[in-house]
Design a protein around this nucleic acid. Structure first.
Length: 216
DNA sequence: CCTCTAACCTATTCACTTG
DNA sequence: CAAGTGAATAGGTTAGAGG
């Protein structure tokens, strides 16, 4: 799987960014940080301890979530500048911002897969119904033909026998043959329902589909 | 070419919330 | 209190920089 997307690769700057993954280094001494104990302990990436017990997880406030969400809608990836800006604005560790974005991308991808499943299922149902109708139509025509054959035999000796079901099945086979080598998703994409495949999944350049660009 | 670093990912854990 | 949700962690991959 390719998860490096189409955006420019990040160019790390160790001198200025090395503290991003350090829970205990507050880059903004003046900024009030939600988890005060982060500054008091020396636990690194290990969950902070307070009085010998694990620090309680805190949910982000609705205001923090609103701002993070808005930022995510603009861009699902988090560049260092935006991370620092959000960190300042929300009073959260940059690491927390990064984790939130990562988890949010995961939720987004899950939703996209759900939508993709729904789209494919809908497409299947439509095609299935269409096939059913065609089969019924062929059976009617076949009955009609048999009737006429009765007359024909009496007059000219009749028409060659045609199986309606076989005709539909063989037509379906023919269609399947033209899609040889293509995945089901690619076939659906060919039919204009959705213009991307799972392999093409890209969290940045959102493919055109029937759902919104950044669903939740 | 190898190592280091920092980004990303998926899978999982665990604390908190909710019905 | 079990199930659901979301924050956090673990461990892996990738790419760029530098020796």
């Amino acid at each position: 799987m390719d998860w490096h997307y189409t955006t420019k690769p990040f160019l790390p700057h160790p001198d200025t960014l090395s503290f991003f993954y350090n829970y205990n280094n507050n880059p903004y001494p003046g900024v009030e940080v939600q988890q005060a104990t982060l500054l008091e302990t020396g636990e690194g990436s290990i969950p902070s301890m307070h009085n010998g017990s694990k620090e309680k997880k805190k949910r982000l406030t609705s205001n923090q979530l609103e701002i993070l969400e808005r930022s995510f809608q603009e861009e699902t990836k988090l560049d260092p500048e935006k991370k620092m800006k959000l960190s300042r604005e929300l009073g959260l560790q940059p690491r927390k911002i990064a984790v939130w974005f990562q988890n949010r991308r995961t939720r987004w991808k899950t939703k996209q897969l759900e939508h993709l499943y729904d789209a494919l299922k809908h497409q299947y149902d439509v095609i299935s119904n269409e096939k059913q109708k065609l089969q019924e139509e062929v059976m009617k025509l076949k009955a009609l033909l048999s009737k006429e054959q009765g007359f024909g035999k009496q007059r000219l000796g009749g028409y060659p026998e045609i199986s309606g079901v076989e005709t539909v099945e063989s037509t379906s086979e023919g269609l399947r043959g033209s899609n040889k080598g293509k995945s089901n998703i690619e076939q659906v994409a060919d039919e204009g329902f959705c213009s991307f495949s799972v392999e093409d999944y890209n969290t940045v350049s959102v493919p055109f589909c029937q759902w919104s660009a950044v669903p939740y």
